[in-house]
Design a protein around this nucleic acid. Structure first.
Lengths: 156, 156
DNA sequence: CTCATTGCAAATAATTTGCATGTAA
DNA sequence: TTACATGCAAATTATTTGCAATGAG
C-alpha cells in the first residue's frame, strides 16, 4: 500500500466513524478527537494503557474510562479491531484496508508480526463449507520465537 | 480414535500427571483426584465455573481456588490446555493425542466445533520459515454462524 | 512430624459503570 | 436548553494469593 492509499484509507475510516456517530447521535468532543488522532498515529496493537499515556502527554486530564469508551466506539463502528493475545490485555489495531492478515507473536520479546497467506484463507473457507458454517471473522496466531530472539540465543 | 485408544490415551495423561507431581513433590489429595476425574468426564472446553459445580455435585465443600489451582497444574504438565475464546472466560480442554486441531465458534449459540486441517498446518510452517520464526503453539479460530443456527434463522 | 494443600477471604488486574458536573449542538 | 460526554471513584468480573487449619507421606 503506497502513501496516497494509506491517506485515503484513513480518510475513509474517519468518514466511517463520523457516519456512525451521526447515526447514533454521538458528539465530537475534544477528548474523542484527541484520542482518535493519537490512535491513528500509534503503533499497531496498542494497549489502552499505552494509548492513554500517549494522549496524556498532550492533555493530562483525560481519564482512563474515556479512552476505553472511545476505543470501544472505534471497535463498534469497524474502525478498530480488538485483539486479545496470550497476555490478558486487550490491544487495538486500526482496521486494515485488507483485513486478511494474521499474527506471529514472539513469546520471548513479545514482538507481533503480521503475515498474510491467501492459501490459508482459502482452506479456511473450505473447512467452513464442510461444516455448513459461515465465517464472520477469524483469529489465527502463531506463538513461538522470532528470528531476532533465536539468533540472540545462539550467541549466548 | 477408537475406544481402546481413548482409554490408553487417558491412562497416558494420568501417568504424565503422576510423573509431574512426583517430580515436583506434589501430593495426591481427595480433592485433586475428584477434580481430575470430573475433568476427564466433562465436555471439552469446560470453564472453571462449570467444572466446579460438577465437582460440588459430588463434594460440595470443594473451593473455587482448588479447582483453579488443579487446572493450572493440569495445564502445566500438558494434560490440559487453556483456551480463551472471545467471551473473556478461560476454558480447559483435555490434551488430545493429536494436538493439531483448531476451532469453529458459533457466535449465535456458542457451540465450539473442532476441525483438523493438515494443509493449514503445513502452510503455517512455511510462513514461520519465511520469517525465521520457530512455532511453539498456535491458535486458529473461525467465528461465524453454525449450520444449525443458519437453518433456524432461515425458518423464522 | 513436616510441609504441601485446602478453603476462605482478601488482593489483583482488567474492564465497566454510576453519577455529578461539564459541554456539544 | 437538552441530553450526551467526561472524570472520578466505586462496582464487576475473572483470577490469584495469603494464611490459618488440615492432611498426606
Amino acid at each position: 500500500m503506497n502513501g496516497s492509499n494509506l491517506q485515503e484509507h484513513q480518510t475513509h475510516l474517519r468518514a466511517l466513524l463520523e457516519a456512525y456517530m451521526a447515526k447514533k447521535g454521538l458528539r465530537s468532543t475534544e477528548q474523542r478527537r484527541l484520542i482518535v488522532d493519537e490512535f491513528f498515529k500509534a503503533p499497531a496493537h496498542i494497549t489502552i494503557e499505552d494509548l492513554l499515556s500517549q494522549v496524556r502527554a498532550i492533555d493530562p486530564k483525560v481519564g482512563y474510562a474515556t479512552v476505553y469508551r472511545t476505543l470501544k466506539l472505534l471497535a463498534e463502528c469497524g474502525v478498530a479491531h480488538e485483539r486479545r493475545f496470550h497476555d490478558g490485555v486487550t490491544r487495538y489495531e486500526i482496521a486494515h484496508e485488507d483485513e486478511h492478515h494474521d499474527h506471529l507473536i514472539c513469546v520471548e520479546c513479545g514482538t507481533i508480526t503480521e503475515f498474510e497467506e491467501p492459501a490459508i484463507e482459502r482452506i479456511q473457507e473450505e473447512v467452513a463449507a464442510k461444516y455448513g458454517f459461515s465465517i464472520q471473522s477469524h483469529k489465527h496466531e502463531l506463538y513461538g520465537v522470532c528470528a531476532n530472539c533465536r539468533s540472540r540465543k545462539r550467541l549466548t
